[in-house]
Design a protein around this nucleic acid. Structure first.
Length: 931
RNA sequence: GCCCCGGUGGUGGAAUUGGUAGACACGCAGGACUUAAAAUCCUGUGACCCGCAACGGUCGUAACGGUUCAACUCCGUUCCGGGGCACCA
């Protein structure tokens, strides 16, 4: 009987499906464990071999935890809203709902092929009204909340109204500094004021506090896509999808006030187990810096009433300030510009306006600026400091104004040199006159009351002083901006609000979901409005009532789907509290690093808000995050001699003028092209002629992203067809560490396949049939078994699945050498193997025993007494008896050791009078003693 | 420029807290079975030296230096690669 993996795998996949073994219950005494994959966007191209890498890892871990006695939640679903489906609809006239459904079916077929243990009864799709009802509902909870800075948590908006009615907003600063109340023009109001405000004013004020709010903001507008993009969707001034230009545009948009959570998002990183680089990316994105805000009196043609506020992280350099720079958009520009400078400033402002973001970003090194003719007064020594405007200072960060310290900041130094501003040296010999030195360790010179102090110590002293004198304050800033939450698209969640008098009001919960209206017009309606604006009878409910024409970004559905899996069919709540409490945090989350910023931050934000509002008893969604590496493609090229249909082999191409063309990797064996297959590949190449080297056509190679257009995509279905799902699973793991990126390389797969065949041969012989017996296992065989249990368990525990696979190979090699066919041993090996290669394990288990499904087996414990040989300690002879070092180390009497020690001067030196804990032997010689 | 991660045979990669570096696999070479091939199995495989032989010697984890009885592992400097951020004051 031979290893017929096709038959075996089909049989068991069907059996698992029919028996529903992977269905998970919420009610049980067993401890829970939650293993989650990032759910995929069901693209039209299907899965390639890179996608399942993370899914296989999580499946192994989920199955492993199940064997360990945990009740494991291991679900899968689809992030099914999104731009590509809509683009596809515009190009091909197929409704997004239909193409998405088709794509999901393809995905599902491919996933089923690999033998995953998902509980498909819990599948979620973000585009399903039964799901996005709750996305909308959560959005309304966010809309209905504000962030209480005193308690550092979100609260219901009613609590804020209560405060306003009692005491006005005195202790509760409006987050947007620039906002002014209509009519009064002020930022503060009393309880009495509040009572006099009309509905519109009240709603406008509340909007300033809501965690989901409407505001006219500069958004990243992409004309080609007809939509707004979030900051993280814009890369170097162009859209991340398509690479189209993006410009700033003021639009009334929904935003999430994520900035209020900046500090908690930062602190929360300490509690979770993410990789260093992942934490680093999030920290950078949040971009916390601490320093001080300082006010400077200003003088121009005459004294100016308003003072200039600057933000600095280095108040210690206050005496090295040689100029000030304010952003061109700064509100003081007009007011302070001296008559003599008016013309020059106007010209400069015009220049700045003409510059697009792309240009500004491309010419970062270019130094431009213009003197305003005004001066700021250094409050400590009265020195007059010229104020400039320059585009390198951004209006959106800090106060939009900086103090220029050329000896300590590189940009400031270049600016000073370029405009010939004299430079004050406050760090003595640490400044060489040629380039700035940003040190914090220098001793200050020329610095009034802080002269002689070390810079980093002076920071606190200066801040204390400016707070004492009331000219400034300690200040923490974050780079992170609020998240734009409106998209001018059709295929997303409609905003569950109704506008009356242009004020948005939350829809009643019982009217949710607000379903997308049927439509087949997906082109943007122009004027910055999305396709929904075309559906007039949906948008206009009545003359007074109007809906929002935008939809939410795909991040919305993905920001909470892991909560829905706990109770996916609930139509009364987003999930039952009991289910949420039981399943709690995701214990292990596996997915790509590309979601580091957007998806993870928004998920963390939503969970924190839901936690603050009392819906969850945890405030970080993911306890541990693992980023699987990408599997890249291994492309092949052919070289066509220009203007001909002749193709020249790689080694000879330098003799001709050629064009490099990608060729389908499936018709190349190694680097050797199958020339007949090539002729049949595309009609253009039917008459191709080849210039060969040594009778073969050699292709060029390159490692690049796996993509249809590079013809380097490997479909997992083909690999599974050829070698089987178990081989595929083990091979993807064997390729290397889960987190490393690596090119797809089929060469090694034979080795893994051979291993499974070798395993099979321990059970079956083609001639003799079944081989196993009930004999008692020998000491040597037990050693192999227990060493293997230990190794696989440890490897699996630390997600080192590549060493796990190796562990099996070693075990099978050793058992083959021992000719071990003992049922007692083989049974246990099969249990260990189940997470990695479930089909073959189940099949062999079925032949071997009548104990039911292997999926119900318990993970075996390893017995330490068999592990000695596998440890790094070697047996030696002491007084004629064979002892292991572990024996010796554990021996309380220790007489033998003392005798040995007396014989060995080196050891005596190491021991230094203490008694040994552990002795290390190498090849029977003692090399070290641990005391 | 700043921040994070990494660099081990021909290749992918092992080495859990500093303790036999190179497990396991690929590839390669040789052999067995076979008319032959495939499949399977066996042997060898970091470099160099010595030798009839050895469980013989020397070197060796990007480079140099340090700590230690002992360093792929810890510390310092440099080089290279990958990722992130980037006029963020």
């Amino acid at each position: 009987m031979e290893y017929n993996f096709r038959k075996i795998e089909k049989k068991w996949q069907q059996q698992w499906k029919d028996s529903g073994v992977y269905k998970v219950v919420n009610e049980t005494q067993r401890p829970k464990y939650y293993v989650l994959d990032m759910f995929p966007y069901p693209s039209g191209t299907g899965l390639h071999v890179g996608h399942p890498l993370g899914y296989i890892a999580s499946d192994i871990y989920a199955r492993y935890k199940r064997l360990k006695g945990f009740n494991v939640l291991h679900p899968m679903g689809y992030d099914a809203f999104g731009l590509p489906a809509e683009q596809y609809a515009i190009e091909h006239g197929i409704h997004p709902a239909i193409s998405t459904e088709n794509n999901i079916n393809t995905f599902r077929k491919q996933l089923d092929n690999i033998g995953f243990s998902y509980d498909w009864s819990r599948e979620v799709r973000t585009c399903d009204p039964g799901y996005y009802k709750w996305t909308q509902w959560i959005f309304l909870q966010i809309f209905d909340s504000w962030f209480n800075r005193k308690l550092e948590k979100a609260q219901r908006i009613e609590t804020l109204i209560g405060i306003f009615e009692k005491e006005g907003n005195a202790g509760y600063e409006i987050p947007n500094e620039k906002f002014k109340i209509e009519g009064s023009g002020k930022k503060h109001f009393t309880a009495v004021d509040w009572k006099t405000f009309d509905e519109k004013t009240r709603q406008e004020i509340l909007m300033q506090y809501r965690l989901a709010y409407l505001a006219y903001t500069d958004v990243n507008w992409c004309e080609a896509l007809g939509t707004v993009l979030a900051n993280d969707e814009v890369i170097n001034g162009v859209s991340y999808r398509g690479g189209f230009p993006v410009v700033k545009k003021k639009m009334r948009q929904w935003n999430l006030r994520i900035t209020e959570y900046a500090e908690r998002l930062l602190i929360g990183l300490d509690e979770v187990d993410f990789s260093d680089s992942m934490k680093e990316i999030q920290k950078n994105w949040i971009g916390k810096s601490s320093g001080a805000e300082i006010s400077f009196k200003v003088k121009s043609d005459g004294p100016i009433e308003k003072s200039l506020r600057v933000y600095t992280t280095r108040p210690d350099t206050i005496f090295g300030v040689d100029f000030m720079v304010i952003a061109p958009e700064h509100e003081l520009v007009n007011e302070i510009t001296a008559k003599s400078s008016k013309a020059a400033i106007a010209e400069y402002l015009q220049y700045v306006q003409s510059r697009s973001d792309v240009e500004r970003m491309a010419e970062v090194k270019k130094i431009t600026g213009c003197f305003t003719g005004a001066y700021a007064i250094n409050p400590f020594n009265g020195r007059e400091i010229p104020i400039w405007i320059a585009e390198y200072v951004l209006i959106g960060y800090g106060t939009g104004a900086i103090m220029g310290v050329p000896c300590g900041d590189e940009r400031d130094h270049k600016f000073a040199k370029h405009f010939d501003i004299s430079i004050t040296n406050i760090i003595g010999p640490h400044y060489n006159g040629e380039e700035a030195n940003p040190t914090k360790d220098a001793i200050l010179t020329n610095s009034n009351f802080i002269t002689g102090m070390v810079m980093k110590d002076a920071i606190g002293k200066v801040i204390d002083k400016i707070e004492e004198t009331g000219i400034g304050k300690r200040q923490v800033n974050y780079k992170m901006r609020d998240a734009g939450w409106s998209r001018q698209r059709y295929w997303g969640e409609p905003f569950p609000v109704v506008y009356r008098d242009n004020i948005p009001y939350a829809m009643d919960e019982k009217d949710l979901p607000l379903e997308l209206p049927p439509s087949d017009d997906f082109k943007s309606a122009g004027n910055g409005e999305g396709p929904l604006a075309n559906v007039k009878d949906w948008i206009y409910i009545s003359e007074q009532e109007k809906r929002d024409t935008n939809t939410m970004p795909t991040h919305a559905g993905a920001a909470w789907y892991f909560l829905r899996y706990t109770d996916p069919h609930n139509d009364k709540k987003f999930a039952d509290k009991k289910a949420l409490d039981y399943w709690n945090q995701v214990d292990v989350y596996i997915g790509g690093a590309e979601h580091a910023v957007a998806h993870l931050l928004y998920s963390r934000l939503w969970v924190k808000i839901l936690h603050d509002l009392g819906y969850l008893n945890f405030d970080e969604p993911f306890r541990k995050l693992i980023n699987q590496g990408k599997i890249t493609g291994d492309s092949r090229f052919v070289y066509r001699i220009r203007g001909t249909n002749q193709f020249v082999s790689y080694g000879l191409k330098k003799n001709y003028e050629t064009d490099e063309l990608h060729v389908d990797v499936n018709i190349v064996n190694g680097v050797e092209l199958d020339t007949e297959a090539f002729k049949n590949w595309k009609p253009d190449f039917a008459g191709a002629e080849f210039i060969l080297e040594e009778g073969k056509y050699q292709c060029g190679t390159a490692i690049e992203k796996m993509s249809k257009s590079y013809f380097n995509v490997i479909n997992p279905d083909e690999v599974v067809e050829k070698y089987g799902a178990d081989t595929f699973r083990m091979y993807e793991m064997f390729l290397g560490p889960l987190e490393a990126s690596k090119p797809w390389d089929i060469k090694g797969i034979e080795g893994v396949h051979r291993f499974l065949k070798k395993l099979w041969r321990l059970f079956f012989d083609e001639v003799k049939g079944k081989l196993w017996n009930d004999d008692k296992a020998t000491e040597a065989e037990l050693k192999v078994l227990h060493k293997t249990i230990k190794q696989i368990e440890e490897a699996t525990d630390r997600f080192s699945f590549n060493t796990g696979v190796s562990g099996f190979m070693i075990a099978i090699n050793e058992l083959t050498d021992l000719k071990c066919n003992k049922k007692e041993i083989l049974e246990k090996i099969l249990i260990l193997l189940t997470p990695y290669a479930p089909h073959i394990a189940e099949e062999l288990w079925n032949h071997l025993s009548n104990k039911g499904s292997i999926l119900d087996a318990a993970y075996p414990d390893c017995d330490p007494k068999f592990l000695l040989e596998s440890s790094k300690e070697y047996p030696i002879s002491v007084n004629g008896k064979l002892r292991t070092t572990m024996d010796i180390a554990l021996d309380a009497a220790q007489q033998d050791i003392e005798k040995m020690v007396l014989d060995n001067m080196v050891i005596q030196k190491w021991l230094d009078g203490k008694s040994p804990k552990k002795i290390i032997f190498v090849k029977g010689k003692m090399v070290n003693v641990v005391v």
